[in-house]
Design a protein around this nucleic acid. Structure first.
Length: 590
RNA sequence: GCGCCAGUAGCUCAGCUGGAUAGAGCAACUGCCUUCUAAGUAGUAGGCCAUAGGUUCGAAUCCUAUCUGGCGUACCA
């Protein structure tokens, strides 16, 4: 990797400079060095700011440090080493280094940025359990869930790329008050629909909206499931059957949205029925971290940094979500994950202290639990905000939204922003299939790469003579080329002789940016920020379009065609790889 | 009241583990299709990085306070 190459050179140079006593009071060589892609190309192909950072410890001015380092830098592969500004060390590479970078991408392909035990971020975190969406099975998924689903699945892909083992889990909240409410709502809704109950008796305040229930549940559904009279079953049975229906619908849409869960974890079946919640509470009681008061069981949350104590078991004998969450997270930890990452809506941020506190109280290591908070998503249509009130029943479901804007745009707009920022989802923009829409901009770059590769090996219509001309390169030769692309043949220096300034600049700019990709994976995974991938791709697309404009690939000069095609091929690989992480399609043709 | 998140070009956002003149896209204006997809590209214009202090060689980035907006502050989840 280009970064490793530079880092090694710098570290070696620092070591030599220290041994020669030219680094002031600095004794220990840093074990990593920040290697940056300068914004301004005049500042070199890569820039190192280490001299400024070492100045405090070395107690000599940054420029003196830079001078000492540059004196001992191994110059192979470099054409220029320059000290600039307050003490930046700016490097420029020779064509061979550029060619090796392209060859590395073409040879490793989708593994170019595959990090591993050796170079992944957080070496001590090898396996991660990602829990997200975790909606109540009482309705369709809405936009907020959609954001979690997209971010979560993109994060899972990103983690895999960054060398983590990932397990995706959906926690089914199928116990408690929501489910009881669901049973009552469903039973009454069916009875009303069958004319057996007066609509005015339906408690809209405390039930789910009638219309949204009836959209999913019918008399026939129950009739078919139970085979006896639907009127005969209890609210509990209504709830269980409705739950299954909603859950199936959620599974269905999530699968379509490329959100893969390895496990659907039922709160009811895995925690309540087998007494795990009760047991977890009991253990807290034994540790004297819980107490009885006013007929309820309380957790001493205040001892663990929360604002007040929290109820675990209510007066009515039922457990709160906190009790179940404790049991659930202990179960997760017992499965041996190094890190538990939960994606939560920002409206739940108040629960973090309680959740971490109760794990501590239970004797667990709460630092293994990490909560990623996501701010709200709102929807605008023609500049007007679309209200999404569950009560009013006009929730915008992700099923509707995907049908309306398409999966690629849906995923892109929900992953583009960082989790901390609110999203205003612009329906009109997402629906646009033109340059205003960044999804198409990125996909177009990929399709362009594909098209060039295709055109080279296919017969082409000459627009002047209206005759079919033979392919520039036949399929066999192209296959041979693609093998050649995997190794550095020292062709760039030869074939790129006499490039114009703009040609050379745009070519180098593209390769330098491609070389950044593994660093991006590292950064994005460490920061749990798949949005960085989206922004990188947008910029890569832009840089590629510039390259495309200034460097005609297909020409009579076969050797030049070959050199440029190797760059196009590498670009296509990276675009596809990034789009795969976001689970957005990479079309060969548009 | 207290807590969390945000406040960067007219709009949507990057940049935030301090670094060299603050970047894109859209919208506005001027160019570029006989040539690999113009779903593209070249350029012009647009900014007291919410405000005020502080930390230092250096701050959009870190700290403190203030202002504005969103969210939370249950024996709901």
């Amino acid at each position: 990797m280009l970064k490793d190459l530079v880092e090694t050179k710098i570290i070696k140079a620092i070591e030599i400079a220290i041994s020669k006593g030219q680094m002031g009071e600095l004794k220990d060589c840093p074990d990593s060095v920040l290697v940056e892609l300068p914004k301004n190309p005049e500042h070199g192909d890569r820039a190192i700011s280490i001299a400024m950072k070492l100045t405090k410890e070395a107690k000599i001015p940054p420029r003196s440090i830079a001078e000492a380092i540059t004196k001992y830098i191994d110059r192979s592969g470099l054409t220029e080493v320059e000290i600039a500004g307050p003490g930046f060390i700016n490097l420029k590479f020779d064509w061979n280094t550029f060619e090796e970078t392209v060859a590395e991408i073409n040879s490793k392909q989708e593994n170019f940025a595959q990090l591993n035990e050796r170079n992944k971020p957080e070496p001590d975190v090898k396996s991660v359990l990602l829990e997200y969406v975790s909606a109540n099975p009482t309705g369709d998924l809405h936009l907020g869930h959609g954001r979690q689903a997209v971010l979560g699945s993109a994060l899972a892909n990103l983690f895999k790329k960054a060398g983590y083992k990932v397990h995706n889990e959906f926690y089914i909240n199928d116990a408690g008050a929501q489910i009881e409410k669901l049973g009552k709502s469903c039973k009454e809704a069916i009875l009303i629909n069958e004319g057996l109950m007066d609509k005015s008796a339906y408690d809209e305040e405390n039930n789910y909206p009638l219309d949204s229930i009836l959209e999913f549940i019918t008399k026939d559904y129950y009739q078919n499931k139970i085979g006896v009279d639907y009127k005969a079953i209890s609210e509990y049975e209504y709830a269980q059957l409705a739950k299954q229906r909603f859950l199936d619908a959620q599974k269905d849409i999530l699968e379509k949205a490329k959100v893969p869960f390895e496990k659907w974890y039922s709160e009811k079946d895995s925690l309540h029925i087998n007494g795990k919640v009760e047991a977890a509470c009991q253990r807290l009681l034994e540790k004297a971290k819980a107490y009885q008061e006013d007929g309820a069981l309380w957790f001493k949350a205040k001892e663990f940094g929360d604002e007040r104590d929290r109820v675990l078991k209510k007066q009515d004998g039922k457990f709160t979500y906190l009790a179940a969450d404790l049991a659930y997270h202990q179960d997760k930890l017992s499965r041996g994950f190094d890190r538990l990452i939960n994606l939560w809506g920002a409206d739940h941020h108040g629960q973090i202290a309680g959740m971490k506190g109760i794990l501590e109280a239970a004797g667990e290591d709460s630092s293994k639990l990490e909560i990623v908070l996501m701010q709200m998503v709102s929807l605008t249509k023609n500049g007007q905000e679309v209200k999404m009130s569950k009560r009013a029943g006009d929730v915008v479901t992700i099923t509707d939204l995907i049908a309306e804007v398409g999966l690629d745009a849906f995923r892109y707009f929900l992953v583009e922003s960082q989790a901390n920022n609110r999203i205003v989802f612009d329906l009109e923009l997402a629906k646009k299939q033109d340059k205003d829409n960044p999804v198409y901009y990125i996909q177009y770059a990929h399709a362009r790469c594909a098209s060039i590769i295709r055109n080279i090996s296919e017969e082409r219509m000459n627009t002047e003579t209206q005759k079919l001309e033979p392919a520039l390169v036949d399929k066999k030769l192209l296959a041979q080329w693609q093998e050649d692309f995997k190794s550095s043949k020292n062709l760039f220096a030869l074939n790129f002789q006499g490039l114009s300034e703009v040609e050379e600049k745009s070519t180098k700019q593209l390769i330098l940016f491609l070389a950044q990709y593994p660093d991006l994976i590292y950064e994005a995974a460490l920061n749990r920020a798949p949005n960085k991938i989206a922004h990188y791709l947008k910029e890569l697309a832009s840089i590629f379009h510039q390259f495309y404009t200034h460097n005609r690939v297909i020409s009579d000069n076969q050797e030049l065609v070959k050199s440029r095609l190797s760059i196009v091929s590498a670009t296509k690989t990276i675009l596809k790889d990034g789009l795969d992480i976001l689970a957005i399609s990479a079309p060969e043709k548009m």
